[in-house]
Amino acid sequence: MCEAPSHFYILQNNEPTIQAMTPALSISHLRKVYARGTVAVDDLSLDIAAGDFFGLLGPNGAGKSTTIHCITGISTVTSGEIRIFGVDAVKNYREARRRIGLSPQEFNVDTFATCRQILDWMGGYFGMERAERKRRAEMLIEKFDLVPHATKQFRELSGGLKRRVVLARALIHDPDLLILDEPTAGVDVELRMDLWRYLQELNHDGKTILLTSHYLEEIERLCRTIAIVNKGKIVQHGPKNEFFTEPGGLEEAYLRATGATPERIAAAAGR
């Protein structure tokens, strides 16, 4: 396991192996300072291999969402470099963004729009022609069991259905890199299982996935590579199996990396 990574992992025979090739996502010395002086991300470097299922773990306020916002253009970058499949995400942002799909933590949707409109508009922003938008939208509406809700306004939907719409929206343009910021927050167990299955399918089909979550079980089950973020820095990073070579597994590693007290770590170990 390493700190301040300068390399990334790629699957070979279903095992992550250190490789040097164009990563799906490469973040180098990223720093984000908000207007009031809060340092949200501090010299964060990270590479994610094409085809990886990468988990970003960290407590609230660790800098996970800010990192994602910097990658996708929702936040400006104070300093550092972000590359999407080798393309500079700031200088060549149009080219870089074509390859990213984002499912954000908070719903950023015109709540008066219908599910179908939300998908159609998003496909349009990405320059998809009408027939292609319609085909992809209908496929995703079916895939996410949204058929009975396709003409309902977003505000009329339950939390779980809203989450599905936002996830479908992230996939409308068939991105190569899918970024999911706590996609199963507020979702019931059944839907969570369905989403997990679908995400595994997508990853199996070649999509690179960056997932943030508070659920250790989710990260443990889905991801092949894991990074733990605390106070804007990556404090631990490596293939999932490396987290399980130490006693206590991912949970203890997480607690240690995020500065939990020895009593708390001991309590977790005793469970």
């Binding site: 963004r97 922003y125 929206r169």
Partner: peptide
């Protein structure tokens, strides 16, 4: 309503 983010993350 934050849906401006839809356009910010797209290649516009």
């Amino acid at each position: 309503m934050r849906y401006v983010e839809e356009t910010l993350v797209s290649p516009l």
